[in-house]
């Protein structure tokens, strides 16, 4: 039986573990982005994750939302570019929506993914089907809404599966945003690099809650 919900400290440690996991995955992200973009996503994410480790390590937070907002600010400031803005917005919007919640259960999880995903869509203008990180986030948010009431361990596991399936589905899509849009149909067959990192992030969150 997994955990019912996560404490503020457990959420912080989860995000630190996510940061390590992404740093370890840098070559995968670089390869994914090289196929469609300019190949800088892996290095950019690595820079963002190191900033998260600097910001979260040893810090105490008043609530769960503040942890996620700290993650968002660290990514935004350190990464720059379009990816810093959209990842930063995801964690900031999702975290802000949690108000003063002191635990992260399946209800908070649903709010976090819903508001985070909406923030990304309004900031970047991407819709589902545009072959972006939204194609992993949207199914994750929808699944999170379905599993409210379950323990966080079960909920995050289902959300991670949905994000992974969304990433896989992005392979068949034609890019219409960002630098990859100029490839048109040539973008078919590769997953979006942003969706790849979302799938890795959520999978690690799920591992930590198990």
């Amino acid at each position: 039986m997994g955990k019912e919900s996560l404490s503020i400290t457990e959420v912080r440690d989860m995000m630190l573990a996510v940061a390590d996991k992404i740093i370890e995955s840098e070559p995968i992200l670089t390869d994914a982005d090289r196929a469609l973009g300019d190949g800088d996503h892996g290095v950019g994410m690595e820079r963002g994750m190191n900033a998260i480790k600097d910001k979260l390590g040893g810090e105490d937070f008043a609530n769960v939302g503040k942890v996620f907002m700290g993650v968002g600010m660290a990514m935004m400031s350190s990464m720059g570019g379009a990816s810093g803005a959209v990842y930063g917005t995801f964690f900031r919007s999702g975290g802000k929506a949690l108000g003063d919640a002191e635990t992260f259960g399946s209800a908070e999880c649903a709010t976090f993914f819903k508001e985070g995903t909406e923030g990304v869509m309004s900031r970047g203008g991407a819709k589902p089907g545009d072959k972006t990180m939204v194609d992993a986030l949207m199914p994750a948010a929808e699944k999170a809404a379905e599993v409210v009431g379950q323990p966080i361990s079960e909920a995050l596991s289902a959300v991670a599966e949905a994000a992974e399936a969304g990433k896989e589905a992005s392979k068949a899509m034609i890019a219409t945003m960002g630098r990859a849009k100029t490839l048109g149909e040539k973008s078919i067959g590769h997953p979006d690099a942003g969706a790849v990192s979302v799938a890795i992030i959520v999978a690690k969150m799920s591992d930590c809650a198990a």
């Binding site: 800088d40 950019g44 935004m76 400031s77 350190s78 720059g80 570019g81 810093g84 803005a85």
Partner: peptide, 12 residues
């Protein structure tokens, strides 16, 4: 000023 070929982050 952004990093090389990347937009400046909001705090800059």
């Amino acid at each position: 000023c952004g990093d090389i070929f990347a937009a400046p982050p909001p705090d800059i």
